[in-house]
């Protein structure tokens, strides 16, 4: 199994490129999810604040 990881002596080139690919692919999936979540929580906070202002003006 170890000779597999050695990649015929080119391990230092092959594995970093696969790791880099993994990082880039994961980053591009995480970024939009976080972007959407941040937008949704932001809107939720605005709605809550708008409603609080509304209630205060009624009482």
């Amino acid at each position: 199994m170890s000779e597999f990881f050695a990649m015929g002596g080119y391990a230092v080139y092959v594995w970093p490129s696969f790791i880099l690919a993994f990082i880039v692919l994961v980053a591009n999936v995480v970024a939009p999810l976080r972007q959407r979540k941040r937008a949704l929580t932001d809107i939720a906070r605005k709605i809550r604040r708008a409603r609080k202002v509304q209630n205060e003006s009624h009482t």
């Binding site: 692919l25 591009n28 999936v29 939009p32 999810l33 972007q35 959407r36 937008a39 932001d42 605005k46």
Partner: peptide, 19 residues
Amino acid sequence: YYGAVVLMRARAEIVERER
């Protein structure tokens, strides 16, 4: 993968635009 990511990003963009 591109199909999935572009739709995810589009959804995030839509939420931001249609807030």
